[in-house]
């Protein structure tokens, strides 16, 4: 197995479970495609394309989290904060499809599970946290960075939780589910801290240059203040 593989391979989940989450992913993407139309216009569509390309690039940059263990950005919260939750889910999905088809990263039968975890669940959780904390994000630059960090941390841990659920339904191997869940969630708390830092830096940079383009700040009267 290559250490450059970043997403779940084929064979970790049994066929019925892979099929089930393939159906979940297709349904979720159908809804996201319809809803994303309302988030996309002549200004935001180019940004959304760039956000997907940026997520692809940053996913390549594994950072150390423990001796012998690395982590990388998932990008759902980052994309949702910048371009909206439905478009954000599509951004991460495009990245996962490109990785699976062009770079042999993330199994083809596991694609549904990978999209469900990283593009749908993680993005939704991260965006809900960002919206719940939105009043802090619009108040000050420090608030915006803290909200981006927190949303991204939650996004990472929830995406890992999605894989735990899939593994509980139809995982292969004979390891204890409790131990597996604890190890996977624990390491993804650490990865989530890295995800949080990257997301805060990126959202902060975009907000400095073009606060008007940050979806989470849309309609906020103080958006201009955040450009400082």
């Amino acid at each position: 197995m290559s250490t450059l593989a970043m997403h779940a391979s084929d064979g970790l989940l049994d066929a019925p479970t892979s099929l089930l989450f393939g159906a979940v992913a297709v349904s979720g993407l159908a809804v996201a495609t319809v809803r994303a139309r309302r988030e996309l216009d002549d200004r935001t569509a180019p940004l959304a394309g760039l956000v997907a390309a940026f997520v692809f690039a940053v996913q390549m940059l594994n950072f150390p989290v423990l001796p012998g263990v690395s982590g990388h950005l998932l990008g759902g919260a980052l994309a949702a904060i910048l371009v909206g939750p439905w478009t954000g889910a599509l951004c991460v999905s495009v990245v996962l499809v490109v990785q699976a088809l062009l770079f042999a990263d993330g199994g083809l039968t596991a694609l549904g599970a990978n999209i469900t975890n990283m593009a749908l669940l993680g993005t939704a959780a991260g965006y809900l946290v960002a919206v719940a904390l939105r009043r802090f994000a619009t108040r000050s630059r420090a608030g915006l960075l803290a909200v981006a960090f927190t949303a991204a941390l939650v996004n990472t841990v929830v995406a890992a939780g999605g894989f735990v659920v899939e593994y509980a339904i139809g995982g292969q191997g004979a390891v204890s589910l409790g131990g597996f869940a604890a190890a996977l969630l624990g390491v993804h708390v650490l990865i989530g801290i890295g995800e949080g830092v990257i997301t805060a830096l990126t959202v902060g940079a975009v907000a400095s240059a073009r606060p008007d383009l940050v979806h989470l700040l849309r309609g906020a009267p103080v958006a201009r203040e955040l450009a400082r």
Partner: peptide, 18 residues
């Protein structure tokens, strides 16, 4: 990307334990 950590990522690490 040349400076990325080459160690297995979190998912890889946990699924190869044991």
């Amino acid at each position: 990307s040349y400076f990325a950590d080459g160690d297995p990522d979190g998912l890889d690490h946990v699924t190869t334990r044991g």
